[in-house]
Structures are given as C-alpha cells and as structure tokens.
Simulated scan of single mutants.
Amino acid sequence: MDKESAIWTALEEVHDPEVGANIVDLGLVYGITLEENGLVRIRMTLTIPECPLADEIVKEVEEAAASVSGVSKVEVLLVWEPKWTPARMNDNAREEIRSHTTHL
C-alpha cells in the first residue's frame, strides 16, 4: 500500500463522535498532500464550523496520519469552503448513522 492510501486508511479510524461515522466516509477530508520531506497536509472540514469537539478531532487526525510509516509531520488545515453537506457522505456513513440512531 502506498503512503497516501495508508493515510486514508488511518483516517478511517477517526470518528466524528457526534455523528458516529468516520471522517472519510462522512466526506470531511477534502484532500491529502504529501511532501518529499515526510510532511503531510490534510485539508478537511467539520460538519459544522461551531463543532465543540474540533480540537479533539484535529488531534486524532494528526495522530492517525502520524502513525503511518514515513510521515514526519502532519498539518491539518480546517477549511469551510466548499461547505460540508450530507451529500458528501458515502453509503457506509449513512448506514453507520442509521444504526447509531436506531440504538439510542
């Protein structure tokens, strides 16, 4: 598996605690840029700009990406354009949210 694929896989372990699905399936990660020196830049958003758990999610993203071999530094860039909408979610996220809400 190449480094970028490994980072995407690692990010699937980071869940939005309020929604109950991982940030990749939710469509929160807009892109990953790899530099030759091991720096990884991750462009992402949150479901709402006022997310009270933003710092926690960003920290988990940094830790997940840093766990990949060859990554020396991680920068998470929170962006608000394009705005996140539920249309960005994939079917995995929709199913996870359905199962999460039916168990409440």
Results as ranks from 00 to 15, higher is better:
residue 71 V to E: 05
residue 41 R to K: 15
residue 60 E to N: 13
residue 43 R to E: 07
residue 104 L to I: 11
residue 2 D to P: 12
residue 41 R to D: 09
residue 54 A to R: 09
residue 14 V to N: 03
residue 43 R to W: 08
residue 17 P to I: 06
residue 18 E to W: 05
residue 75 E to M: 10
residue 21 A to Y: 04
residue 22 N to K: 03
residue 95 E to R: 15
residue 78 L to Y: 01
residue 43 R to Q: 10
residue 10 A to K: 02
residue 66 A to N: 09
residue 60 E to F: 11
residue 93 A to W: 02
residue 62 E to F: 07
residue 79 V to T: 10
residue 98 R to K: 15
residue 73 K to I: 09
residue 5 S to L: 14
residue 37 N to F: 07
residue 101 T to R: 15
residue 61 V to G: 04
residue 16 D to F: 01
residue 60 E to Q: 14
residue 99 S to Q: 15
residue 39 L to A: 09
residue 60 E to K: 13
residue 93 A to Q: 06
residue 46 L to E: 00
residue 42 I to L: 08
residue 33 T to P: 12
residue 74 V to L: 05
residue 23 I to M: 03
residue 83 K to D: 09
residue 57 I to F: 08
residue 99 S to D: 15
residue 12 E to T: 11
residue 81 E to R: 13
residue 3 K to M: 12
residue 39 L to K: 13
residue 104 L to Y: 12
residue 93 A to C: 08
residue 30 Y to G: 04
residue 103 H to N: 15
residue 51 C to L: 04
residue 83 K to Q: 12
residue 21 A to C: 09
residue 25 D to R: 05
residue 29 V to R: 02
residue 56 E to T: 14
residue 3 K to L: 11
residue 90 N to T: 09
residue 68 V to W: 00
residue 102 T to N: 15
residue 22 N to S: 04
residue 25 D to W: 00
residue 101 T to L: 15
residue 83 K to S: 09
residue 73 K to Y: 10
residue 40 V to P: 01
residue 95 E to F: 14
residue 86 P to S: 08
residue 104 L to M: 13
residue 19 V to T: 05
residue 19 V to N: 03
residue 27 G to S: 07
residue 39 L to T: 10
residue 17 P to V: 09
residue 87 A to L: 13
residue 3 K to T: 13
residue 70 G to H: 04
residue 93 A to V: 02
residue 82 P to K: 06
residue 27 G to R: 01
residue 95 E to P: 12
residue 71 V to Y: 01
residue 72 S to Y: 06
residue 8 W to H: 11
residue 88 R to I: 05
residue 26 L to P: 02
residue 23 I to S: 01
residue 60 E to P: 10
residue 62 E to K: 13
residue 4 E to G: 07
residue 50 E to Q: 11
residue 65 A to K: 03
residue 89 M to S: 00
residue 79 V to G: 03
residue 3 K to D: 07
residue 15 H to G: 10
residue 10 A to F: 13
residue 94 R to A: 00
residue 67 S to D: 09
residue 74 V to T: 07
residue 12 E to W: 09
residue 20 G to E: 04
residue 11 L to Y: 08
residue 91 D to K: 10
residue 12 E to D: 10
residue 100 H to C: 12
residue 26 L to R: 01
residue 44 M to Q: 07
residue 62 E to L: 11
residue 8 W to Q: 11
residue 48 I to E: 07
residue 18 E to C: 07
residue 97 I to A: 00
residue 17 P to T: 06
residue 14 V to L: 04
residue 19 V to H: 04
residue 56 E to Q: 13
residue 54 A to K: 09
residue 29 V to Y: 04
residue 77 L to R: 11
residue 81 E to D: 14
residue 2 D to F: 10
residue 6 A to V: 15
residue 100 H to S: 14
residue 62 E to Y: 06
residue 5 S to K: 12
residue 73 K to R: 12
residue 49 P to C: 07
residue 6 A to C: 14
residue 48 I to H: 07
residue 29 V to K: 02
residue 47 T to A: 04
residue 71 V to W: 02
residue 59 K to I: 13
residue 67 S to T: 13
residue 24 V to P: 12
residue 16 D to S: 05
residue 6 A to S: 15
residue 83 K to F: 05
residue 38 G to T: 10
residue 23 I to A: 03
residue 17 P to Y: 04
residue 58 V to M: 06
